[in-house]
């Protein structure tokens, strides 16, 4: 896992500043689009903890994302200092329940098991009246601590999402430099060697799985806040696959890869809806092209 170089960090910092300045020059619609990309980046970054750092490809991630989003709806929108921790803890707890079962398996078995568990979370909201039904519901956004007018809303959520993403990214950069981070990366490159060195591989994987789940819950929470709407589709495995595409697009070997990938995919999807009336066709072609030709992602462009 490559943490961006000093120059890279400067470029990322510059991009963050450019996004932070958007309320000064961009339209509300562009700010909403940027918010979508930021939430996507946060979600893909949570999955990168599993895929890029530990080498586990999970399809349950959208389930935790959706749990985080539904936490806002189920709580009835109390202030954000209540919803945010609850969303993170709920998603983390779900990961703590599913993780030990799914992690008994490896490779393809792990993929299939996580897909099945993720879909079960989806069915829990899709088939039962628990979360307001199949078509989704509008939610009241939690109180942020100050009153926001409708016109200020896109800018406020943009800055909020940016702040959360920067904090999570910085936290993960730090994590990758700790013993735990190195141990996770050791599992990715050779699991048996790590076991032979005396590491409790199973426990390390579970830590990564729960951390990734909790961060996905955070991303889902931010998505619910930004959109003011939750639906069972948030938990569907298609969303997990999209996050995987963001990682592949951006670069599987780099911690900042998912961020690049999320912005690239959001731009491509937006262009797809503007140019054609078949956006999924565009997305399918992008998936295919990325997997066939872009092996190292945008972060590894020059390799």
């Amino acid at each position: 896992m490559i943490v961006a170089s000093r120059t890279g960090q400067c470029v990322l910092g510059g991009a963050a500043l450019a996004i932070a300045s958007m309320p000064l020059w961009a339209s509300a619609w562009h700010m909403q689009l940027a918010s979508t990309a930021l939430v996507g980046a946060l979600f893909a970054l949570s999955l990168q903890v599993l895929v890029g750092a530990t080498g586990l490809v999970s399809l349950a991630q959208a389930g935790f994302f959706g749990l985080g989003a539904y936490a806002v709806q189920l709580l009835g929108s109390p202030p954000i200092w209540v919803t945010l921790p609850v969303a993170v803890v709920a998603a983390g707890l779900a990961a703590l329940l599913i993780g030990p079962l799914a992690l008994r398996t490896r490779g393809f078995f792990f993929l299939m098991t996580t897909l099945a568990f993720g879909q079960m979370l989806f069915f829990a909201f899709h088939d039962t009246p628990l979360g307001g039904g199949t078509d989704g519901v509008f939610i009241q956004r939690p109180f942020l601590g100050f009153a926001i007018s409708r016109t200020a809303r896109p800018a406020v959520f943009l800055l909020l999402n940016l702040g959360v993403l920067v904090a999570v990214y910085a936290g993960l950069c730090g994590l990758m430099r700790t013993m735990l981070g190195h141990a996770l990366q050791g599992i990715r490159s050779n699991e048996n060697r790590m076991a032979a060195l005396g590491h409790d591989v199973q426990r390390l994987k579970l830590i990564a799985f729960v951390l990734a789940g909790a961060l996905a819950g955070l991303a889902g929470h931010m998505a619910a806040l930004t959109d003011g709407f939750v639906s069972p589709d948030l938990l569907g495995w298609h969303r997990s696959a999209e996050a995987l595409l963001m990682i592949l697009l951006g670069g599987i070997g780099a911690l900042h890869g998912p961020i690049l990938g999320a912005f690239a995919l959001t731009a491509i999807q937006e262009a797809g809806t503007l140019v054609t009336d078949r956006p999924r066709l565009v997305e399918g072609v992008v998936f295919l092209a990325a997997v066939l030709f872009l092996r190292h992602g945008l972060a590894g462009w020059r390799r």
């Binding site: 393809f108 993929l111 696959a241 078949r278 066709l281 399918g284 998936f287």
Partner: peptide
């Protein structure tokens, strides 16, 4: 190829099959 690539390839196929059916 790694699992990730296989997942993404077959997910791309899902989207393309659905679009072909829709068209």
């Amino acid at each position: 190829r790694p699992h990730l690539d296989q997942v993404l390839l077959t997910f791309a196929l899902i989207l393309l099959f659905e679009e072909a059916r829709s068209a």
